[in-house]
Simulated scan of single mutants.
Amino acid sequence: MRLISLWALCCFSTVSFAADVPGSQDLPIVPRLADAQIVDYRPPVELERIYPLGSIRKISGQLRFDGQITARGQTTAVTYELPPEHSATEAFTEARKALQKQDAELLFWCQARDCGESSLWANEVFGNAKLYGADEQQAYLLLRLAAPRDNTLVALYSITRGNRKAYLHVEQFEAAAPLGELLPTSATLLRQLKSTGELDFPDRVDAPDDTWLRLISRGLNLDTTLRVTLSGPKAEAWRQALISQGVRAARMETGTVEGKGLRIDLLR
């Protein structure tokens, strides 16, 4: 029995036995991948933070991206080096799923060259040279935690370097002032739909509003091969409104009226 218990501990414990950076610790909201090692830790510090909401590039010495969130607050950052048996993609996906189980909202999600230059993410955004790798081996995700912690953002960045070492960077930002309304990008809605098979909007309980109608219709029209089911009390109203925004009627079906908001499921 003792041998079985030790085997189970080795296989399933979320605590790494590797040598972490002294004084470091995990963020409670993101579980550590087994055998990952903390190679960089930055304790809470108050500063102004800019989180890109688009592909990053540098023009005339200035960073450029399509959108951003700028706020002041406390930032805590943890960088993990992953064991050889786990990929950066795997660690990124597990962290995303853990946050989504806590009802975190995805604001911006990019992968590979859609993110821009890895060197800019590493050095300009996160200030950590360990995160510099091949552009096609990167992923970035910015999420907002659910109420009552909706003034907290979490940034995930994964990368595989040229030496095949893989890293996951996790950054938690607690804003000093209310963040107000933050909207996801249409491309992020599409990536989420294709990756998870669903989009859930529990707050969209009323008739379609212009802002969300534009976001959802643009997301669906970024890939015109997809077919979806719309569910919820106002599902048919949303379907008709999306048709008026150029989404082909043949791509959308109306599902159940259950639930309090709008839900979109991918028809595979």
Rank of each mutant, 00 (worst) to 15 (best):
G61Y: 09
L190H: 02
I264A: 00
D223T: 13
R32W: 12
A104Y: 07
R42K: 09
Y157L: 04
D40H: 14
P83R: 13
M1W: 15
T229E: 07
S60Y: 13
K58W: 00
E236Y: 08
M252Y: 00
R191G: 03
S217I: 03
T76L: 03
L189R: 03
S231G: 10
P208A: 01
P22K: 10
L222W: 02
A166W: 05
R42L: 14
R32F: 11
L262F: 00
Q245M: 10
Q138A: 05
T89P: 00
Q138W: 07
T93G: 13
F108H: 13
Q111E: 12
D103F: 08
G180Q: 12
G219S: 01
C10N: 15
Y157H: 10
L106Q: 09
A139L: 10
T229Q: 14
R72F: 07
Q245E: 14
E181F: 07
A155W: 02
Y157P: 01
W121D: 06
V78Q: 02
L189Q: 08
M1G: 12
A88D: 13
V21H: 06
E85I: 10
F17I: 15
A175R: 07
G261V: 02
I159N: 08
S60M: 12
L9K: 15
L33M: 13
A207E: 08
D135E: 14
I264H: 06
R227N: 12
I29S: 14
E253K: 15
L27Q: 10
C10G: 14
V228E: 06
R144L: 05
W121T: 04
L213F: 01
R113W: 09
E46G: 04
R149V: 03
S118C: 07
T185N: 00
F17G: 14
G133M: 04
R42W: 07
L143H: 06
S16R: 02
